[in-house]
């Protein structure tokens, strides 16, 4: 049986030729992402800003009556709700600030949840209240801080590990790719205004892990080739390494995308944002391991000497003797 080959055998794409334009585009995308995050802001869920979120599914309708809901809930006097569909068109999350004084009297938040749920049920026969989340301001601040810590520490710890296993240039390259991936994911959330909650932090950590996985595979091959082809110019050597690992990159990314698209299409709607984030992350992560982490090695001047042990005095003598013997 003839086996399927996703990448032809003698593929030789000159990836590194375009490193500068791609690098500039990536840089611009990163800047644009952060600019969007700061101007548009992220649509923070109750996990990070506190408040109450009520999830409702309209079991008999194809689409949720969002505008109507907004009006009905605003009438209750708890302020303007944020209403968004998530995953499916007929499922919404309704977010409200916790009522004044609810940090002292927990009953107030409870009463609000009851009143809002009752109002929705009264107006819509098919409304099914799927869940209520209430997070106080204090806890949400802590959740935000610990999430930030987890992200920061994970990035640093991983970079240190790569530095230890490879060389400092590789550590910086990996860190750079990682910042790139996280930035673009944040950009996605700023553009789409999908809800940014705790699970998205888990998604970003996954992207970091995956993107590094990719980077490491390429780096591992670069390290191997650096030892093998001592005289080859670096851009050429990087191209060779990327091309040699290309079929693996395509295959693995493809497999990941298959499982993720299955999750997006058939999976639970509650984790739609989570899956969407990782799906983007796979693209960005694959791209960044080719166009971010590899070219940086050129600019940081990695040499084959980085992986060859320093000569001992005896070896030096022997080498000189050998070279002297040559014409």
């Amino acid at each position: 049986m003839k086996l399927l080959k996703l990448v032809p055998d003698d593929t030789n794409i000159h990836f590194l030729k375009w490193r500068l334009p791609f690098f500039i585009v990536s840089g611009l995308l990163m800047i644009a992402s952060w600019a969007l995050v700061f101007t548009h802001g992220l649509n923070m869920g109750v996990d990070f800003v506190g408040g109450q979120m009520i999830r409702v599914t309209f079991t008999q309708s194809a689409t949720a009556p969002v505008a109507q809901l907004r009006e009905e809930i605003a009438k209750l006097g708890y302020g303007e709700p944020i209403i968004q569909t998530f995953g499916a068109e007929n499922a919404v999350s309704v977010r409200l600030r916790l009522p004044e004084g609810s940090d002292k009297n927990a009953g107030l938040a409870d009463a609000m949840a009851k009143k809002v749920s009752a109002a929705i049920r009264a107006a819509h026969q098919d409304a099914r209240v799927d869940g209520v989340d209430s997070v106080s301001g204090k806890v949400s601040k802590e959740l935000g801080w610990t999430a930030f810590q987890a992200l920061g520490l994970a990035s640093i710890a991983i970079s240190i590990y790569i530095w230890y296993r490879f060389e400092w240039q590789f550590g910086i390259g990996a860190l750079f790719a990682l910042v790139h991936d996280v930035s673009l994911t944040m950009g996605l959330f700023a553009v789409t205004q999908m809800e940014f909650d705790l699970t998205i932090v888990a998604a970003i950590l996954t992207i970091i892990g995956y993107s590094l996985n990719d980077t490491i595979v390429v780096y591992d091959r670069i390290r191997e080739n650096l030892k093998k082809f001592r005289k080859m110019p670096l851009p050429e050597l990087l191209d060779l390494s990327v091309n040699e690992t290309l079929s693996r990159t395509v295959m693995t990314s493809g497999m990941m995308l298959i499982t993720l698209v299955a999750l997006l299409l058939f999976g639970p709607k509650v984790i739609f944002g989570f899956t969407a984030a990782i799906t983007l992350g796979i693209f960005v992560g694959t791209y960044s391991s080719v166009y971010m982490s590899a070219p940086i090695l050129v600019w940081l001047r990695v040499t084959s000497g980085s992986f060859v042990p320093t000569e001992t005095a005896l070896e030096r003598q022997e080498r000189l003797a050998r070279e002297g013997a040559l014409p």
Partner: peptide, 22 residues
């Protein structure tokens, strides 16, 4: 090996600092 170690590092930090879903 290297790829899995980095993933374990990320997961361990998620476990140590993350809450609930993480």
């Amino acid at each position: 090996f290297d790829a899995n170690i980095t993933n374990v590092i990320a997961a361990a930090l998620m476990f140590a600092f993350g809450s609930g879903p993480i």
